[in-house]
Nucleic acid binder design. Structure first.
Ligand SMILES: NC(=O)c1ccc[n+]([C@@H]2O[C@H](COP(=O)([O-])OP(=O)(O)OC[C@H]3O[C@@H](n4cnc5c(N)ncnc54)[C@H](O)[C@@H]3O)[C@@H](O)[C@H]2O)c1
Ligand SMILES: NC(=O)c1ccc[n+]([C@@H]2O[C@H](COP(=O)([O-])OP(=O)(O)OC[C@H]3O[C@@H](n4cnc5c(N)ncnc54)[C@H](O)[C@@H]3O)[C@@H](O)[C@H]2O)c1
Lengths: 211, 211
DNA sequence: ATCACGCTGTGCAATATTTCACAACTCAAG
DNA sequence: CTTGAGTTGTGAAATATTGCACAGCGTGAT
């Protein structure tokens, strides 16, 4: 029994999130069982890959009848979710930040953007999309008070590294970064950068290269 | 000499885009040469990987002096860019769409969101972030007229598949999709889905699992 | 009861991607 | 000129990820 636990890969975690969202949809539509080949279509993979992913959450499938949807949702959630609702902080309430705030605050079961932060005094104490915008000075207190461990970073590229380091210093454990900057971290903090520009340039490239 | 050309991988294309952005920054700062190990830091890879990526664009490095930045930018651009400026369409001018429009229209060298489309009549003909919003009926004409081959899709999840198919039917060759839906396509159309929700859920998951 | 069918779980093969490691090269200093 | 430090280009190894294929099982039809 080494220290190296059964670690689920990043790719699998992403797919589990996608499966769950789809399963919740199916559930609402009244469906109660699903086959691996149905799930495979929504992630453009194979049925085998789906079954492998689902094995990671403690394999519930039954031959010939597929997987029970509500059970699957429960098992995936047991892996993805914390026991209590997760509090998220948004840093940078600009054009993108506001859209994210409107999208992610409230309405989700397992997490919620509970506070927004900006360094523009004009925004302090304003309520934006139902959430109050605080000054950066209030960040440490709020992190402690609300037990925030994950942050969304939507500040300009120039400030991204500085603010990321700031977040890490204050105890944040994961950052979803929208600034087009790679963020280096020695610590065990998880950083996911969603780089829309490179995604768009990739799309443009393949618009010419495919078929 | 088979039909199977020297195809550059998706991952490499993404990194080339990131390198180029960084190189342009360095260039502005007056730097004129760069080593592979410097570039490796901004993509959290190894120097060897960077050198491999750069070989794909026609290896320009010189031992002991590294790569010449302006040449590298030129060579990467030769791979990533089309000869003329690429015209992009935005479908869905909601909260996210407006942010994207503000961010991606104008100011870029090699591409530009030139037109926005929505199915909400209240938005028709309004100028948003400097770009006119058209009705969906005008899409085919604009695609032909402006030779648009890449589109950004920012419509609600329920409409995403339908509108994607619509785009494909009208001749679009690549789609950057922000709706949390997988889009299936038999044809050779390139589809990149940026799923912010699964990215956030991944971050939340690893906020607990790291270290 | 039996059989055929279709699905799951999984060992193993196949790919894809990354890293290692080193020969070859450049340059500056002595 | 020679040496040494430092870098590139790249074959080969190492990993990571995916796909194949089949045994085994549950189900419904006969
Ligand atoms: N808008 C988009 O669609 C889009 C697309 C791709 C990438 N991005 C990236 O997302 C980030 C945000 O983009 P945006 O369009 O919302 O920019 P924005 O300029 O509209 O908003 C930035 C916000 O961050 C605040 N801010 C600046 N420095 C700060 C700091 N040090 N601490 C806290 N807050 C700070 C500003 O006051 C402002 O409210 C940028 O890095 C941008 O490159 C945006
Ligand atoms: N806002 C965010 O930060 C965010 C984050 C993650 C994902 N998304 C996804 O991005 C997409 C857009 O999000 P949003 O917040 O901008 O939504 P939104 O409701 O603000 O905007 C949607 C826009 O699309 C238009 N529209 C609807 N159906 C259309 C159709 N068939 N053809 C053309 N236009 C149509 C609407 O009129 C509206 O203007 C959604 O799929 C959402 O799930 C958004």
């Amino acid at each position: 029994m080494t220290r190296k636990e059964n670690r689920i890969s990043e790719k699998t975690i992403e797919r589990l999130s996608v499966y769950r969202r789809y399963l919740k949809d199916l559930n609402k539509k009244g469906k109660d069982r699903v086959y691996s080949h149905e799930l495979s279509q929504i992630v453009s993979g194979t049925a085998a890959q789906v079954r492998r992913d689902l094995m990671e959450v403690g394999c519930n499938g039954c031959s010939s009848k597929g997987y029970e949807i509500s059970l699957l949702i429960k098992e995936i959630s047991k892996v993805l979710d914390c026991s209590k609702k997760e509090n998220i902080a948004l840093i940078g309430v600009g054009n993108l930040g506001r859209a994210l705030l409107g999208y992610f605050s409230g309405a989700r079961d397992n997490y919620d953007i509970v506070a927004a932060f900006d360094n523009d005094p004009a925004k302090y104490n304003r309520i934006i999309c139902g959430r109050r915008c605080y000054s950066m000075e209030q960040l440490p207190n709020m992190i402690d008070e609300l037990k925030i461990s994950t942050a969304i970073l939507a500040v300009p590229a120039e400030s991204a590294e500085k603010e990321a380091q700031n977040l890490i210093d204050k105890g944040i454990k994961a950052i979803l970064n929208f600034a087009p900057r790679h963020i280096t971290t020695g610590s065990g903090v998880f950083i996911e950068t969603l780089d829309m520009t490179s995604a768009l340039e990739k799309a443009i490239y393949f618009s010419r290269k495919n078929t």
